[in-house]
C-alpha cells in the first residue's frame, strides 16, 4: 500500500515477488521504552482511562479495563468497537494519549511490549498468532524465548492442557486446523508462565464443540492463578464464565459488571446478546 504521508513507505503499488517479500510486521521496534514505576494497590491489572488510536483520530475514548488476580474478564462488543485496539493498548502496542496501565502494583505504561512480556503478560493476537512454518514444539519454544531457565516442565503442562498438540508437535503450525492453531497460540503465550494472559478472540473460527473445550481449558488456566483478559464474539458463553464483563461500544465502556449481571441485564440482552 502506498502512503502519501511517509515516502519511505511508498512502494508505488509494486508487488514484485522476485525482489520483495510482503507481509512485514506492523509493530514499532522496541527502541525507546521507559521504566516501570511502583504504584501499589488496586486490582491486579488496571488499565484506566485509555485514550488513543493508530493515527490522528482516537479509537479508544477513556476506556477502562481491570482484572483481579486469578479471575476472568471478558470484553464483548460489536465489530469495530475497538476491542482489539484496547487489547493492543494494554499490551503497549499503541501510543496512548491518555490513561495508564498498572500491573501487579507497578505502573507499566511506559514499557515496550517486550518488557511487558518480561513483567508477566502474555498476549495471543486475534490473527497471525503462530509461526506457520515452524513446528508446534518450536512455536512453544519461541514462546519461551525470554526464559533463561529450563522450560520443559511448562511445555509438558501445555501438552497436558492441549493433548492434541503433543501428537502434532513435529508438524508445522501452518498445517494445523483452525482450532488446533488457536491452541498452539494459547500454548505459546503460556510458555512464559504469564501472570496475566490476554486472548483476542481465541475461539474465532472454531466449531462449537472445540469452543466449549477451549473455554474449559481457559477456566483451567485461570484456576492455576493466572488472570485472564479475553475478547470474545460468542458473548453469551464468554460472559457465563466471566467474573467481570465489559461491553465496549465505539471505544468506550458502555456497560461494566459481573458476567452474571450483564447476562441478566435486559438492556444488554436486547442490544448485544440478541434477545
Amino acid at each position: 500500500m502506498s502512503s502519501s504521508r511517509n515516502p519511505y513507505k511508498d512502494d508505488r503499488g509494486n508487488k514484485d515477488r522476485s525482489i520483495t517479500k510482503s507481509g512485514g510486521g506492523e509493530l514499532e521496534y522496541p527502541t525507546k521504552g521507559g521504566k516501570a514505576r511502583p504504584a501499589p494497590g488496586g486490582p491486579f491489572l488496571a488499565a484506566e482511562n485509555m485514550t488513543g488510536g493508530y493515527g490522528a483520530a482516537d479509537i479508544l475514548h477513556d476506556c477502562t479495563l481491570t482484572v483481579e488476580k486469578g479471575q476472568i474478564a471478558v470484553i464483548v462488543g460489536p465489530n469495530g468497537a475497538g476491542k482489539s485496539t484496547a487489547m493492543k493498548a494494554v499490551f503497549g502496542m499503541l501510543n496512548l494519549r491518555g490513561g495508564h496501565v498498572k500491573l501487579d502494583g507497578e505502573d507499566i505504561t511506559a514499557l515496550t511490549p517486550q518488557d511487558r512480556v518480561a513483567k508477566g503478560m502474555g498476549f495471543v493476537p486475534q490473527v497471525n498468532n503462530v509461526f506457520p512454518s515452524m513446528s508446534v514444539e518450536e512455536n512453544l519454544e519461541m514462546g519461551a524465548f525470554i526464559r533463561k531457565d529450563d522450560f520443559r516442565a511448562t511445555m509438558e503442562q501445555v501438552y497436558d492442557l492441549f493433548p492434541i498438540l503433543k501428537d502434532k508437535r513435529r508438524q508445522p503450525a501452518g498445517e494445523l486446523s483452525g482450532g488446533q492453531r488457536q491452541q498452539v497460540a494459547v500454548g505459546r503465550a503460556l510458555m512464559t508462565k504469564p501472570k496475566l494472559l490476554m486472548l483476542d478472540e481465541p475461539t474465532a473460527g472454531v466449531s462449537p464443540i472445540v469452543m466449549d473445550e477451549l473455554f474449559d481449558r481457559i477456566i483451567e488456566v485461570a484456576r492455576t492463578g493466572i488472570s485472564i483478559l479475553m475478547v470474545e464474539q460468542n458473548a453469551r458463553q464468554a460472559l457465563e464464565i466471566a467474573d467481570r464483563g465489559y461491553v465496549l461500544v465505539q471505544g468506550a465502556n458502555k456497560y461494566t459488571d459481573t458476567g452474571e449481571a450483564l447476562l441478566a441485564d435486559p438492556e444488554v440482552r436486547r442490544t448485544f446478546l440478541g434477545g
Partner: peptide, 21 residues
Amino acid sequence: KSMRAYSDNEDLALLSGINPE
C-alpha cells in the same frame, strides 16, 4: 530458530521477546 520465527511472523517474534536487531 529465532531467525526463522522472525522471518515467519515479525510481530509475533517481537511479542515473544526476540530482539530484531
